[in-house]
Design a binder for these strands. Structure first.
Lengths: 251, 251
DNA sequence: AGGCGTTTGTGAACGCTTGCACAAACTCAC
DNA sequence: GTGAGTTTGTGCAAGCGTTCACAAACGCCT
């Protein structure tokens, strides 16, 4: 608590941008960031790797290795300075500026995303809404007007949008993606259940709610099959219910 | 097309449940399944690993290795029988029965999820809605009544629910998870931005929309830094715009 | 000032995942 | 029936990610 004499960004001055940060690490940094914000609000000034790892739900060794890729921002015998680490991770993730995001598709899901407070509280600003349905164009959602998707190029340019969210039906998603790329968007978060093909240099991440459930379904299936076997794991702490599966194969 | 003389489940009779299927493979099977359904609707009877891989957005070698874990359901020189492969993957994922899902938290996002058609079209049935807000209890959404969360145990038991979706604010999520587990739920899909701690035997998958955007933000950040360097990738096909980043570090 | 307990950063081993490359197996045409 | 062309299934090697275990570094107490 006596060490960080420098304002809020001490050794962060390097403009290097970590071109070789492992993908797995990048995917976990946001989780660490969220845990750190929680700790900061709770009044913590420093936190050990063990404590932060518990708050982020990972192994402490993994956390230390992840953070070591960013440089040495911990103090041996003490832990990590919470505020400094927040600043460092936000810098690496490019969250020092509030990024403008476009949302395409204001249907069932898109409507909810447009009103989701978690975006704005964590570094993003929904800057524009688009839809192709003439019945929805002009509608106001959360203070934003739904634009005709034909206006993508001008609005993307005017608002300096580089990230877009696709929340359209699957059959429209590829066409929307093409138009987004043409307008200059270089990162896409796709909620439509389909594969998008985009040129090199454009990043796509996919969120498919049904796929997540299907993965859980597999594990359920596997677990329920264990009920027919003598408990393989040592302590009988696992709750076993009669097989709900039925497993009817021959129709 | 002359080979599968047996109804719709030929060698699928084995009750074994693939306890050692690699996680990475399990996570891709739903994607293959979706691609296969598309192909079936388009009229394909068979598909090659190359074709299916393209439709699912993966490498063909990876696809073949994934499918080989399920057994040999392809025909050399021909490809895979679409209908047979669909049946096989659905069996492995435990989708032969339509699983009942509970949804807790009927706020902004939960409301949208309750109306999302993708769940019911892909093997799941939203069987019950819950909330803690008295103002929402009793509301009808998509033909379902919102129950008081206190009624979790009875409804979970009555509907044979084993999977639940948490769409509550973060501060309520852990408490909800505890009550779900106590009621007998063994798989949870968590949309709340927080880490859930659950006992062994319970699976949790997490979907955090802000985290996805932050990962994209990192790549945007990295890409925009490249504008200051001579194009490192061979062909200059990458669209480069003047740096939008600003990269202001010292406040 | 010096020793002690604590915590970070990291080398090294391990396991999982991916991608290549090719033999085995199948269809089709003649 | 035979040969040519096609496609699957898989051994193998390389790369990536995770975990262990420990030396180096730090604060604190005496």
């Amino acid at each position: 608590m006596s060490q960080q004499r420098n304002g809020q960004a001490a050794g962060v001055s390097d403009g290097a941008v970590f071109p070789d940060l492992p993908e797995a690490t990048v995917a976990r940094l946001p989780e660490y960031l969220r845990a750190l914000h929680n700790l900061a609000e709770t009044g913590f000034d420093t936190v050990s790797s063990e404590g932060l790892a518990a708050a982020a739900g990972v192994n402490s060794a993994k956390l230390r290795k992840d953070l070591s890729h960013l440089g040495s921002y911990g103090t041996r015998g003490v832990g990590y300075d919470v505020a400094l680490l927040i600043a460092q991770i936000e810098h690496v993730l490019g969250l020092t500026q509030r990024r403008a995001v476009a949302l395409v598709g204001v249907g069932n899901l898109g409507h909810a995303l447009a009103g989701y407070a978690g975006f704005s509280s964590r570094g993003f600003r929904i800057a524009a809404l688009f839809d192709a349905d003439p019945g929805r164009i002009g509608e106001r959602i959360n203070g934003l007007v739904v634009h005709d998707i034909a206006r993508l190029p001008e609005v993307v340019a005017a608002e300096a949008i580089s990230i877009a969210v696709i929340a359209t039906p699957a059959h429209a998603a590829q066409s929307v993606a093409d138009r987004l790329v043409a307008a200059g968007v270089t990162s896409i978060l796709n909620f439509a259940p389909c594969v998008l093909s985009v040129p090199d240099g454009v990043d796509v991440r996919k969120v498919d709610l049904a796929i997540e459930l299907q993965i859980l379904s597999f594990h359920e299936h596997r677990k329920s099959a264990l009920t027919t076997l003598p408990s393989p794991t040592g302590d009988g702490s696992m709750k076993i219910r009669p097989t709900l599966d039925g497993e009817a194969l021959a129709t």
